[in-house]
């Protein structure tokens, strides 16, 4: 049984028992970071941090084995804010929904690739609920926002019962479905660095349908060009072609110093395919993923490049 001091005295707590008298699931909705950490730290048994719930809920509501404790972090203000910092960077709360992110015009202007990646997740209904933090912590190799987050060089603010720490996004997912977060930790927010002039990003994914689908393969490109239109910074990240998103450093190096002319793009495509380590599954064959990722990365690079030139 959960026993935590209720510091704010405002938060919500509930338990469901079965007909036989056993606890089915406890739910709490703390309102401060400290309360979330205390709840996480005190929990025994399975505990899930809950924000949008679009991946979490279908797993236990209709099925079996709900977690012993569900901690709803949406009432903690730090998880819900989108803030532009004086130096030009952004802070995005981990429980910000896709809808909230798409509606933030400044953010969309600075990070078109990241925001369109988030926007591709599910329907309008899903967008109202699905969160940036949830998409990362679900730790799916096919998550749409994660390649774009990594390409943006985003960092995570992580809170735990021992205090806070900061990690780059690419360090979070360790294998499909698993993150490096300890049981008493959760992601509070993301920090996106300030943009240099002539910088832009782009994200593309392949799905059989136009909407309501999971990426067979995806690619995010974030780059900066100099006044001559030569790429001087570049980050390329591939999704659904490995157990975790692939930070494609050798491919990004090919674009550096170039204007993305035809010969460069051909080498870039070949390098992308060489970096893919996909599996064959119900959504696509390894061969297809390898081929199509090169196409997506190339197109995303061109889009980002053209955006950067604007």
């Amino acid at each position: 049984m959960l026993r935590i001091p209720l510091k704010s005295g405002k938060w919500f707590f509930a338990i469901t028992f079965s007909a036989a008298g056993t606890v089915i699931m406890e739910y709490c909705a703390p309102v401060t970071l400290a309360e979330v950490c205390a709840a996480l730290g005190a929990a025994s048994g399975t505990v899930k941090v809950f924000a949008g719930g679009t991946d979490l809920l279908p797993r236990f509501v209709a099925g079996v084995n709900p977690p012993a404790l569900l901690i709803d972090i949406k009432h903690v203000p730090e998880t819900r804010e989108i803030r532009r910092l004086a130096e030009g960077g952004f802070v995005i709360g981990s429980a910000c929904s896709g809808g909230q992110i798409s509606a933030h015009t400044e953010l969309v202007r600075s990070w078109p690739g990241l925001t369109e990646a988030m926007d591709l997740i599910g329907s309008v209904q899903i967008q109202s609920r699905a969160t940036l933090g949830g998409n990362l912590c679900n730790a799916s190799p096919a998550a749409d926002s994660v390649p774009a987050l990594i390409a943006s060089r985003a960092r995570c603010r992580i809170a735990g019962s021992d205090g806070e720490r900061e990690l780059p996004v690419e360090d979070i997912i360790v294998s499909p479905g698993r993150t490096c977060l300890r049981q008493d930790e959760f992601i509070v927010s993301f920090f996106l660095p300030a943009r240099n002039p002539r910088s832009a990003d782009a994200y593309l994914r392949m799905t059989p349908r136009t909407e309501m689908d999971i990426a067979i393969a995806s690619a995010a490109v974030n780059l900066t060009v100099d006044e001559q239109g030569v790429v001087n910074e570049c980050h390329v990240v591939l999704g659904a072609v490995g157990p975790v998103p692939v930070y494609a450093l050798p491919a990004a190096r090919i674009l550096l110093g170039s204007r993305l002319d035809e010969e460069v793009r051909q080498r870039f495509r070949r390098q992308i395919s060489a970096l893919c380590r996909p599996i064959s599954d119900k959504r696509g064959s390894a061969e297809y993923r390898t081929d199509v990722t090169a196409v997506l990365a190339d197109r995303a690079a061109m889009t980002a490049y053209n955006r950067a030139l604007l």
């Binding site: 739910y27 909705a29 929904s97 209904q125 899903i126 109202s128």
Partner: peptide, 11 residues
């Protein structure tokens, strides 16, 4: 906001 009622907990 438009939501799926099946993905919202009553609590």
């Amino acid at each position: 906001e438009l939501v799926c009622a099946c993905l919202v907990l009553a609590v």
